[in-house]
Design a protein around this nucleic acid. Sequence first.
DNA 1: TATAATTGTGATAATTTAGTGATAGACATG
DNA 2: CATGTCTATCACTAAATTATCACAATTATA
Lengths: 224, 224
Amino acid sequence: MYKILVVDDEEKIREVIREYATFEGYEVVDAIDGMDAIKICKEQDFDIIVMDIMMPRLDGFSTIKEIRKTKNIPVIMLSARGEEYDKLFGFELGIDDYVVKPFSPKELMARINAVLSRTKTNDKTKKENNYVYEDMQIDMLGRVVYIDNEKIELTPKEYELLVYLVVNKNIALSREKILNEVWGYDFYGEDRTVDTHIKMLRNSLGKYRDKIVTVRGMGYKFEE
Amino acid sequence: MYKILVVDDEEKIREVIREYATFEGYEVVDAIDGMDAIKICKEQDFDIIVMDIMMPRLDGFSTIKEIRKTKNIPVIMLSARGEEYDKLFGFELGIDDYVVKPFSPKELMARINAVLSRTKTNDKTKKENNYVYEDMQIDMLGRVVYIDNEKIELTPKEYELLVYLVVNKNIALSREKILNEVWGYDFYGEDRTVDTHIKMLRNSLGKYRDKIVTVRGMGYKFEE
DNA sequence: TATAATTGTGATAATTTAGTGATAGACATG
DNA sequence: CATGTCTATCACTAAATTATCACAATTATA
């Protein structure tokens, strides 16, 4: 369950956000201004902060700056129409999104969801040249795979298949899609060819053979 | 081109909205009250509905409730200033936004655009989206369902059936429609096959088995 | 209440699907 | 050309899934 900190001096706004966010299964904590938010953040951790820019005592930007000194939490800013708008673009602390007041509560929720799913799956999109999982390493530059620091021998197809599965880990891939992506769109062979190569790849992967999971009625996926 | 249904008993308001919306390239259809709106919705599909709350014969909330029985169309509500009570109602019904009367037509248009761009991009990524309800999550990319963070085992048909019900949540679906959508139009088996799969799906869903509600004389629905 | 209609469910047979060993052709190499 | 490697397909098996039926349970109706 995700935990949201809502920072706004208007009670009505806090209430509306709380209502919708609670409904969607979030845990909501309120703060009435920046000072309050900083204090609360010292005690608790949040998955995301929704914060007004214009607030008494301490404005949203300064508050974020302060909080970010110790914690890297995604932030959605609320800003009045026109006001401060341009500041957001040049803002050196990475604001994840902004919503202009008056906003649609459902839209705000959609953005919160979007930011969370984006930040929570950030590591997925890291397109690195190396993939490391426990004792398995794939060196995509050298086209080599190591298990327990031992180089394992893979045929070209096995290697390509493995890389494709790993790059799309945790995604169920149909045989058709696998054929298209690994074999190419001009391959007109059987579906089941994939099965055979999965079989061989599994054998090559030794103790990691079960990382390749069968998705019945569909295809396969690499499960991390 | 998007199609809007405008429901308001005041002709002047309908006219203003029509003018602005037409100008922005929308196709506009009018309804003078809730009954009218329901009738029109049976004949046509819309991308969004803009509806007054206070109307003779049938108020906005009841109208939406009725329309949502068969269609999941985004809704923006028009409410007179001070009508506080309805916000709670609305959020249970999944109202996408509110605009308080008297409103600026420009603002209304901005909100219409916002809601549409959100819901339409959602459609695109629907298959990549996750559905979360309390302790149940459906990972449509990974084709997995978790309850209490435990992966639950579903057969392909169970999974597809669940996804279909959830995507059309709160809508009563006939056996025939379910067969057509989940089994495909080329399936010529019994109606009751659905029943059996509902049974198995319910068993798999454990504590959420009652989310799948029997609609007597009709079929089933997933009730959120 | 009795009766009819509808839905729930256990059992099971039929069907579908995936795992796998064998095999033949393709291809490259020496 | 002989050899070894890689690849795609096939055939067979085991296992999982599915559709149907029969009867029980429930709900609606007369």
